[in-house]
Design a protein around this nucleic acid. Sequence first.
DNA 1: CGGCTTTTTGATGTCCGTCAATCAGTGTGG
DNA 2: CCACACTGATTGACGGACATCAAAAAGCCG
Lengths: 259, 259
Amino acid sequence: MRQGDRLSTTTPVYAPAAAEDLLLGAQLLRRAFLETPVLSADRDKVVVPADSPEPPVLLIHRGVAYQSTALPDGRRTIVDILLPGDIVGVDHAVLRRSHHEIVAANTLGYRLLPPDKLRQLLRDPRIALRAMALASEVSRRTSRHLTVVTRFDARGRLAAMILGLYDRLRRQDLISRPTFNLPLTQEQIADHLGITMVHVSRTLRRIREERMVVIDRQVVVILDIAALRHAAAGLSADEQAAPGKAAITRPEPLIAELS
Amino acid sequence: MRQGDRLSTTTPVYAPAAAEDLLLGAQLLRRAFLETPVLSADRDKVVVPADSPEPPVLLIHRGVAYQSTALPDGRRTIVDILLPGDIVGVDHAVLRRSHHEIVAANTLGYRLLPPDKLRQLLRDPRIALRAMALASEVSRRTSRHLTVVTRFDARGRLAAMILGLYDRLRRQDLISRPTFNLPLTQEQIADHLGITMVHVSRTLRRIREERMVVIDRQVVVILDIAALRHAAAGLSADEQAAPGKAAITRPEPLIAELS
DNA sequence: CGGCTTTTTGATGTCCGTCAATCAGTGTGG
DNA sequence: CCACACTGATTGACGGACATCAAAAAGCCG
């Protein structure tokens, strides 16, 4: 199963009539990225500042980043978490300024495409379709997160977050077992879920005691994925990514590198 | 000031290099819509069901609609509120199924564009750019709303909602004074802001007593817009839409029809 | 070993949810 | 024209989930 299959069969969310073009568009866009060098950023480094003019599009190659917006009172919201393979900011093709800042959560490898280059690529309708699909995916993720944050308590939010990350990592073939690396501090998790750091800590303890998930030192181990899905119940369960109940053996995590 | 100017001067959010194409794309897309008949839906009518296959794109012509997702336990989240002039669902060009359902909040006039027709239009790079811009605008609104909902208390959320609607209506030239029609029940407002109906009622009373905003029977009258902006402080204040302090004279509201 | 960040835990308060009853407005039909 | 039903809004009492404040413990690194 290579890149192509993934798009058309494993995630059948796209219109059949557009599938072929989308596939080609994805390849073309990827090719354009591959002509750019892999850049690197350390933890907490701001890769794309907020309000930066002519913001680039980026492809996460390795590591984790997040998009955030700051409020004048010093608080912030982490709007989205970015994983290897994610393409962020396709809308930068049309925007004068970026809305969010993009920050490396750990050591990050990424590629940049300047916006005029992207605009040029978008002249190809297949790439344009692909860009729409990428934008749509982000938008779907955001609105899902919105639902989580408005309707779930801290436990449900945590469950939904972990499950969401797990499913995304699975879909990208970056992990095969229910355990992975999550390079976020509890404060960052708090800023993502709209609760306080203190409450994140307490809630983590709770779900650990429930033998649902163990999160220790940025390593996530899902113990009972059924319970996890139950706790995050009601979310469009995508497609059930894992067929059977996950019985973990040894925690041997870490997010793999993107090909 | 007609349609064109608005895009380039009144809302200078788009990249200069793309401005001209965006403008043309907007015109072309609009033209395509204008070839379709104006349909009509009554209050509470589901215009686009959730999960509907081959979902169309729509242009709101008159009235207000909202996008929502239901949870299995019967609760729902109203993700976005749609006003006259809004184009919703450009990502339906690539999706096999719609994510949200779209419901008329009051008597609604709208136009539909089937997805294959949109795909065909997207072959024109200018329209593709315009579609990206539309998607970007929705995404910006959603993430702003996410920030509001995660960081503000009920009073702040209400303030942000009212202010957001006010600014959008102003920008579309649908109102000129700080008063407008909001055809949502308190329960719908609650589902949008992630609080309960009961608490919406209490909070409305509170901001009324503070002489900030009066909302009675679906008519919103902003009494002190400075206080409102202060209560919703910290949001990217767009451009300050109203230059001076709004001193209302007579409440004479109602959302105008789109040309 | 300091000095730093990150996590943990306790005590206390509050915003908001839940439950429940009442009220106002609108429409319906006898 | 007045019951009647129905939806939407209002208000009170009470409890709980989460925030805040504060301090200490645990990692981490030079």
